[in-house]
């Protein structure tokens, strides 16, 4: 994906206020085609509000959202023909079977041919491993089975945009893995916009992430950029031997901006901050190799998404990447 990839979702200062409560503060974001866009935030951050704004289920207080270039308020019906949506806590009519639910959903999009519709429904049932329970009433389904049915119904219409609100929230680890695999597979056909508070999932499948907190966007960017941290690139180096000589060598380089000292199992543990990542990547290890030291560990510092999340949610915004 590159900068020329078309936008599927674009919002301009989109906001929503309920009486005195700002559920969503002015939000501007772009979701590119065929991306898996992770929409991250704690409960009450404004994730579901944003999704409902996209679907035309609620109206913005200010700002606008365009989806496929269409206005989310005025052209909601046209937008919805191209979207698949999984609600946060999917509820279906209890007396219906999974197959009936999928038929019901399919009829909103397709008239015929019946055989092709039936095949599509069977394909979806198979995708979420519900073929064996397709004709049982939903009241007999577990939470995970309902969630899987929710995922199936969201895809019946071959959506150009799949909006999933907490798709893995009520699934066990195996169910979560399956959902993430399905999402990865679908990437070549569709754009996926999904909200979650499960950080590990986001790190595994998303290519772009937005973090919302208290209705406000607090971090945004490609997942790689976020994981490299907002404070510039740094390397973790563990070494032993004549470390002072090595330190002098490094600090004399114009692209080394600082070294933070530490200890690890008796070795010196440095965090070397660099101002020119490309030069650092080409030269840093070579420079160390020429010093009278033994390098026991060398890696680029990588944040876990949880670190980033905690940092921005606890009030240390690291800005947009």
């Amino acid at each position: 994906m590159n900068i020329s990839t078309p936008f599927v979702i674009e919002t301009h200062e989109l906001s929503k206020t309920y009486r005195d409560i700002e559920a969503l503060k002015p939000l501007s974001l772009i979701v590119r085609q065929n991306s898996i866009f992770g929409f991250l935030g704690p409960n009450g951050a404004g994730k579901t509000t944003t999704i409902k704004l996209f679907l035309g289920l609620i109206r913005p207080t200010a700002g606008s959202a365009t989806i496929f270039g269409m206005d989310s308020v005025r052209q909601s019906l046209d937008i919805r023909t191209r979207i698949g949506y999984l609600p946060q806590d999917p509820r279906f009519h209890e007396y219906m079977t999974a197959r009936q639910v999928l038929h019901f959903v399919a009829r909103f999009y397709f008239n015929k041919p019946k055989k092709a519709i039936e095949e599509r429904i069977n394909e979806m049932l198979e995708l979420v491993d519900l073929s064996g329970k397709a004709d049982r009433p939903i009241r007999t389904f577990s939470g995970g089975e309902r969630q899987r049915l929710g995922i199936a119904q969201a895809q019946v219409n071959y959506p150009d945009l799949l909006i999933l609100d907490e798709p893995a929230a009520s699934l066990d680890p195996l169910g979560r893995r399956d959902v993430l695999e399905v999402m990865s597979r679908l990437r070549q056909y569709t754009t996926i916009f999904y909200s979650t508070h499960i950080l590990d999932d986001v790190q595994r499948v998303s290519d772009t992430v937005v973090i919302l907190n208290k209705g406000q966007l607090v971090a945004e960017g490609p997942i790689e950029n976020l994981l490299s941290g907002g404070e510039g690139v740094a390397y973790i180096v563990h070494l032993r031997g004549q470390v002072e000589e090595a330190r002098k060598q490094l600090l004399s380089q114009p692209w080394v901006s600082g070294i933070v000292d530490g200890q690890h199992n008796g070795d010196s543990a440095w965090q070397v901050s660099v101002s020119d990542p490309q030069t650092a990547e080409a030269q840093l290890f070579r420079l160390l190799a020429n010093c009278p030291i033994e390098v026991t560990e060398f890696r680029r510092r990588r944040y876990e998404l949880e670190d980033i999340f905690m940092k921005v949610v606890e009030g240390e915004p690291n800005g947009r990447q």
């Binding site: 289920l57 019906l77 609600p87 946060q88 509820r91 279906f92």
Partner: peptide, 13 residues
């Protein structure tokens, strides 16, 4: 229970 929102997320007026 959200079924109305779910149904109206489909192309239905």
């Amino acid at each position: 229970d959200g079924r109305a929102a779910w149904i109206l997320s489909k192309p239905a007026t």
